[in-house]
C-alpha cells in the first residue's frame, strides 16, 4: 500500500467534470428549493387550515425521511406508475439528473421553509404594530418590514442548510449520476486506491464548504451592518 500522488494528479481532469455536475445540482436545487420554501412558508403563515395542513404534511414527510430514500423513490419508484411514464414530466424524471434535482429541491424546500419561518417569528412584534400604526397594508408590512429582518435572522441557519445541500449532492452518485463522488467511486473501482481518490474528493468538498461558509459570513455581516453591537 503506497500513497500515489500521480494518481491524484491524473484524476483531476475527470474530477473537475464531476465537480461541474455537483455544482449544477447544488445551484439548481437550492434555487428551486428556495422558491418552494417561500410558497410553503406563505401557506403556513396564511392561517387557513386548507393551506396550512398540506404545507405541514409536506414538511413532516420530507424532514422525517432520509434524502437517499427520497431519491430512490423518485428515481426507482415513480416509473412503476403508467401515468408517470406517459405524463409530461417523464423526460425530466427519466434522467437521474432530473430526479436528483427534484428530490433535492423538494427536500430543501421543506427544510428552508422551517428556517425562514424561524426568521419570520423572530421579527419583533413592535415593528409590526408600528407599521400598522403608519397605515401600511398587510402585504406592504410583510415585504418592507418583515422580510428584510427575517432574511437577516435566517442567514446563519440557511448557510448551514446550504452546506448540508452540498453534502447531499454526493448522494446523486447512488443513482449512477457522475457527480464528484460518482467520479471518485468509478476511479476507485478501477484503480482500487480508495485513500488517494476519496481524500482528494473530500479536500475539494472541504474547500467549497469553507468558501460558502466565508461567503455567508460576509453576507451576514453586510446585512447586520446597521445592527447595534452589544457590549
Amino acid at each position: 500500500m503506497t500513497f500515489d500522488v500521480f494518481l491524484i494528479l491524473n484524476s483531476i481532469p475527470t474530477m473537475i467534470e464531476g465537480l461541474g455536475i455537483t455544482l449544477k445540482l447544488l445551484f439548481l436545487s437550492t434555487v428551486i428549493g428556495l422558491a418552494l420554501a417561500v410558497v410553503t412558508l406563505l401557506m403556513r403563515l396564511s392561517g387557513h387550515w386548507l393551506l396550512t395542513w398540506p404545507a405541514m404534511f409536506y414538511i413532516y414527510i420530507f424532514r422525517g425521511t432520509p434524502i437517499l430514500v427520497q431519491i430512490f423513490i423518485i428515481y426507482h419508484g415513480l416509473p412503476q406508475f403508467e401515468f408517470i411514464r406517459e405524463g409530461v414530466l417523464w423526460p425530466l424524471l427519466r434522467e437521474p439528473f432530473g430526479c436528483c434535482v427534484v428530490a433535492l429541491s423538494l427536500n430543501a424546500g421543506a427544510y428552508v421553509s422551517e428556517i425562514l419561518r424561524g426568521g419570520v417569528l423572530g421579527v419583533d412584534r413592535g415593528l409590526h404594530e408600528a407599521g400598522k400604526a403608519l397605515g401600511l397594508s398587510t402585504p406592504h408590512r410583510f415585504i418592507y418590514i418583515t422580510t428584510p429582518i427575517a432574511v437577516r435572522l435566517a442567514i446563519p441557519a440557511y448557510s448551514n442548510d446550504f452546506i448540508s445541500m452540498l453534502k447531499a449532492t454526493a448522494l446523486a452518485s447512488t443513482v449512477t449520476l457522475m457527480d464528484m463522488t460518482g467520479v471518485a467511486r468509478t476511479i476507485v473501482a478501477k484503480t482500487f486506491a480508495p485513500y488517494e481518490i476519496f481524500i482528494a474528493a473530500a479536500i475539494v468538498y472541504l474547500c467549497f464548504t469553507w468558501t460558502f461558509q466565508r461567503g455567508f459570513g460576509l453576507l451576514e455581516r453586510y446585512m447586520s451592518r446597521y445592527v447595534k453591537k452589544d457590549a
Binding site: A170, P194, F198, A202, Y205
Partner: peptide, 23 residues
C-alpha cells in the same frame, strides 16, 4: 469538526469502509 462537518457523509462512509479494507 472542520473536516467531518465539511465532507459528505457518503464519502466518509466510503473512505472508512474501503480504506480500512485495503489497509
Amino acid at each position: 469538526t472542520v473536516v467531518f462537518r465539511g465532507t459528505p457523509e457518503l464519502l466518509v462512509i466510503l473512505i472508512i469502509y474501503f480504506g480500512s479494507a485495503i489497509t
